[in-house]
């Protein structure tokens, strides 16, 4: 039953995909290059009508497919500032996300531990966290550019600040809500505070912490595209904006697909890590 369900779901996915591509093909192949009646084809060519008339900049699926193939065949070429392979651009973005995210992990988890263990800190820091959490990370960009004075580092800072809150809140919450009886077990066994933190609190809170980390990586990957559009230079966000300026809708569509695939891979990695630390009760 389960197997047949997944089989049916896969079939439906393929059908939907074919329908979508078909509709796309129909929508973009319309608007024929037919010339106004009675016009001499040579004259029309002279006017440039044959090249543009009725033809949208929106590519057909086949054109996009060809472009993807082209990018996949040579993802790492580098022909100057405005012409780098999509692999290089994605690598820049992933590197920025990784750096900002890891710094956020290094700050959020120890700090979240402290906040979670101390009801005093929990209450004292709560107003700040609640105010900072809903701020769009891009709002920090001018402040970052002004103080850091380096656009690439500013992008990393923006990633750091947007990854911080979900991890901080989840770590604090996970640590604060460790079951009392598990802590009592540690107490009756005279387990010291450091050993207790690593053998009881950390494993107990790990699923909640990993959930926060998974939310954070998702947000970070959303934010990096926008941040790179602003700071420019390199990265997949810059690539999208640059191709828009080149009016290469094909490349924009290709970039959207690649952004989606990389985001999915990042999420899957965190989901796998979360599964590894989850315990059934």
């Amino acid at each position: 039953m389960l197997k047949s369900l997944s089989w049916r779901a896969a079939t439906l996915s393929v059908v939907l995909f074919v329908l979508f591509v078909g509709a796309w093909q129909l929508a973009t192949s319309g608007g024929s290059t037919a010339l106004p009646p009675g016009m001499d084809p040579e004259y029309a060519k002279l006017l440039g009508l044959g090249a543009t008339q009725g033809k949208s900049a929106m590519p057909t699926p086949l054109e996009v497919g060809a472009k993807i193939w082209g990018h996949l065949r040579d993802p790492f070429y580098d022909r100057g500032t405005n012409d780098k392979g999509i692999g290089i651009q994605l690598a820049y973005s992933v590197a920025r996300v990784a750096l900002g995210y890891l710094i956020a992990v290094a700050v959020a988890i120890p700090l979240g531990f402290l906040i979670g263990m101390s009801p005093l800190l929990y209450r004292a820091l709560d107003p700040f966290i609640q105010i900072m959490k809903p701020v769009s990370p891009l709002a920090w960009m001018p402040l970052a550019l002004y103080t850091i004075k380096d656009s690439s580092t500013s992008a990393i800072f923006v990633i750091f600040i947007c990854s911080l809150w979900p991890m901080l809140i989840n770590t604090a919450f996970g640590v604060a809500s460790v079951r009392k009886e598990w802590l009592n077990v540690a107490r009756t066994l005279e387990v010291g505070p450091v050993r207790r933190a690593f053998t009881v609190i950390l494993p107990a809170a790990a699923p909640t912490i990993l959930t926060g980390m998974r939310i954070s990586i998702g947000i970070a990957w959303l934010v990096i595209v926008a941040a790179e559009m602003l700071v420019g230079g390199t990265g997949i966000g810059y690539f999208v904006w640059n191709e828009w300026n080149n009016l290469s809708i094909t490349n924009v569509i290709v970039a959207i697909l690649f952004i989606g695939v990389v985001g999915m891979v990042l999420d899957l990695m965190l989901a796998r890590a979360a599964r590894a630390v989850t315990y059934p009760e």
């Binding site: 009886e181 598990w182 077990v185 009881v200 494993p203 107990a204 315990y279 059934p280």
Partner: peptide, 11 residues
């Protein structure tokens, strides 16, 4: 102590 709810560490 033997706890009412066994209090085993599930991981």
């Amino acid at each position: 102590v033997i706890f009412q709810g066994h209090a085993l560490l599930p991981w």
